[in-house]
Design a protein around this nucleic acid. Structure first.
Length: 114
DNA sequence: TTTGTGACCGTAA
DNA sequence: ATTACGGCCACAA
């Protein structure tokens, strides 16, 4: 069972991802201390309350593609947001080799203090 | 209680 | 490049 603060961990870690960069669901799960829990990340974002705005658009699938069905409003929204940050989205796909985020040691250490 | 369903992933064909 | 499969597990029916 996920720790009570699993969602919190995920959202807090997501906040560390800078504009113009993306992470995959699985990678975010790993960074949040929840290895193998990619699906939990998706659920956390889906159930996230709109109170505190999250950079949810910076999360994509492991192959770089936008998780929403191509053509859906959500996919459009995500594409626009990423484009606004300078992320090149080609056919609902992003080159992780160019835009994938790698946390610097200091940031990671700070996050691990949970 | 059992079953089906995901904003997923790694491996293998 | 795509498809298939097993793993993952909270949640709703």
């Amino acid at each position: 069972m996920p720790k009570p603060h699993a969602y919190k961990q995920i959202t807090e870690t997501l906040k560390l991802v800078p504009a113009g960069r993306v992470v995959s669901y699985g990678q975010l799960a790993d960074l949040a201390g929840l290895p193998g829990r990619a699906r939990l990340v998706g659920r956390a974002l889906k159930l996230a309350d709109g109170d505190t705005p999250l950079p949810w658009h910076r999360v994509v699938r492991a192959d770089g593609k936008i998780a929403f069905p191509a053509g859906s409003n959500e996919a459009q929204e995500q594409r626009e947001r990423l484009c606004a940050e300078g992320v090149e989205v080609i056919r609902y796909r992003i080159r992780l080799s160019n835009y994938g985020w790698q946390p610097d040691p200091y940031t990671l250490l700070h996050q691990l203090k949970y």
